[in-house]
Design a protein around this nucleic acid. Sequence first.
DNA 1: GTAGTCAGATTGTCCGGACATTCCGATTGA
DNA 2: TCAATCGGAATGTCCGGACAATCTGACTAC
Lengths: 254, 254
Amino acid sequence: MPKPEVDPTVQLELSVDRSSPVPLYFQLSQQLEAAIEHGTLTPGSLLGNEIELAARLGLSRPTVRQAIQSLVDKGLLVRRRGVGTQVVHSQVKRPLELSSLYDDLEAAGQRPATKVLVNTLVPASAEVAAALNVAEDSDVHRVERLRLAHGEPMAYLCNFLPPGLIDLDTGQLETTGLYRLMRAAGITLHSARQSIGARAATTEEAERLAEEAGAPLLTMQRVTFDDTGRAVEYGTHTYRPTRYSFEFQLLVRS
Amino acid sequence: MPKPEVDPTVQLELSVDRSSPVPLYFQLSQQLEAAIEHGTLTPGSLLGNEIELAARLGLSRPTVRQAIQSLVDKGLLVRRRGVGTQVVHSQVKRPLELSSLYDDLEAAGQRPATKVLVNTLVPASAEVAAALNVAEDSDVHRVERLRLAHGEPMAYLCNFLPPGLIDLDTGQLETTGLYRLMRAAGITLHSARQSIGARAATTEEAERLAEEAGAPLLTMQRVTFDDTGRAVEYGTHTYRPTRYSFEFQLLVRS
DNA sequence: GTAGTCAGATTGTCCGGACATTCCGATTGA
DNA sequence: TCAATCGGAATGTCCGGACAATCTGACTAC
């Protein structure tokens, strides 16, 4: 009589380098994540108890727990008291993160192209001033870009930035994303407020995106903050829904 | 000469109850969160160093760190090595979480109403079978609902669920949300894959939502998994973009 | 045979300490 | 006056241990 299928405890080849400056818990979590990604740790398999795992690696239990916890936070592992820690079954991709459209497209293998339409200083409108928390009519950067994939327009991006944060070089804007430029300028992105909606295209919008007037457009507005709480970017984007949609994975925060 | 404005270290009245079954770190993090919410801890203010905070509360440093870490993960606090821990400036609302439209509307103070259009068992189509990971043509629940706010239709929700998980009572479906029913049935929601897009309304869709054919609609597809990796729900939703948009806050994963 | 009970296993919480790393301001030197 | 150096202060990492809470499976009693 066949035994019921039980997820086995997997024996992994794990090791840490104590002379490395990389934290031990991080080395361990990276190895575990790689094993999950690679399929060595199959979904549903038990990870083995923390005490024994710590002993095998010559680490303390808190260190092992810290490594496991980081993967639990990523949604790759599930802990059950009295049972153990196992790999989740579902195919977890990347959870929704604060990424730029440019990075998204590049990761999807579509060589993105950017055409800078406008790159200038303008006085802040009431809407922009409120979003960026600056005085109305004070100077702000205004950048309008058209993002293309495979030569087809995909999105129209209009962004406002407070002055003095970053120098916006048109050439750089055409070869990389705005977020990458901000990170390179030493800005630590912290959070963003987003709003995703839809509306019919105006004649202007339709022309920019090679659609027809009245065609449905996907819209996104976003204000991004750095870790000091400053608003560092306000953007109004419109996407062609036939070419782009927002795909992401959510984790339940427990 | 006026001193430069420096964010002060705030003295808070904190206490923990060691006889409570609530974990100490959780008691502390809740009090800190309440103080931030209430404005007692103002944005930018320093939290005071962990060692002294632990001594004042009669706790160990790891326990205090665990409390602080949970708030850092929520985006409410920022730690800086060599400096201290301070409250984030930006108005952090709730980060995007796996919530139901029903809960969203209720939280916004709009008494949501639900009209169940269909509640039956149907054979799974190829699309549904793939999403729920069940055999094609096997029985699955099909639920179609119209969600209204202030008497106006706001969204059309079509959901599929594998059989045996939960008994779908039409009466209950009209008075609460699907997620709440699933949680009440002992299902631990873990993650969901979502896709948000837009398209023009068909004649059918337009009629359901009191729009005109060709009007832009906001669409959302979602597969939800429980912590064992089973798909527990697949949904295809259409929203009236003039009445609803997705608002949320993102945190940068560090 | 069925239901309740008990024991083992595993994670959850908490402690007290140690040293490393990083940031910032103050002191020192040119 | 300005720049480099130094030291204090705070968080980051890591250890070893202890007990509690919970789940599973096996045993026992009816």
